[in-house]
Computed example of a mutant assay.
Amino acid sequence: MDVVTLILQILVVLLSVVLILLVLLHKGRGGGVSDMFGGGVTSSMSSSGSAQRLLTRVTVTTAVLWGATIVAIGLIARLSLEF
């Protein structure tokens, strides 16, 4: 169980970094805190709608995998305490 837990912990770290990068790649919608610091300038040519949809799907999939990995680590920890 220790090897599986270690592998899952490494996977959580990798998925966390990937998830942060994916969220930072998303196009801002405006009206948020970023507008106060000059981030409110938008360009209609920045990316296409299909690219944004793909990026959203990849981000959601990564977030679901991240959550499932954390739940798996918790279940393994609980099972190892019972034995």
Rank of each mutant, 00 (worst) to 15 (best):
V3W: 13
V4T: 08
T5Y: 05
T5D: 06
L6R: 04
L6T: 03
I7N: 08
V13T: 08
L14K: 04
S16V: 00
V18K: 00
V18W: 01
I20N: 08
I20R: 04
L22C: 04
L24D: 08
H26C: 14
H26Y: 09
H26V: 07
K27M: 09
K27C: 10
R29F: 15
R29W: 08
G30S: 07
G31L: 00
G32R: 03
G32D: 02
S34W: 10
D35M: 06
M36F: 13
G40I: 04
V41C: 14
V41E: 10
S43W: 12
M45H: 05
S46K: 07
S46N: 09
S46G: 11
S46M: 10
S47Y: 00
S48T: 11
G49R: 06
G49V: 14
S50R: 07
S50H: 08
L54H: 02
L55P: 00
L55A: 04
L55D: 03
T56A: 08
R57G: 09
R57T: 09
T59A: 05
V60A: 13
V60W: 05
T61I: 10
T61W: 11
T62I: 00
A63Y: 01
A63D: 00
V64A: 07
V64D: 02
L65T: 01
L65F: 08
W66N: 01
G67P: 02
G67C: 04
G67W: 02
A68I: 15
A68H: 08
A68D: 12
T69C: 06
I70K: 00
A72D: 00
I73T: 01
I73Q: 00
L75H: 13
I76Q: 03
I76V: 13
I76E: 03
A77F: 13
L79F: 15
S80P: 08
S80M: 13
F83Q: 09
F83S: 15
F83K: 09
F83C: 09
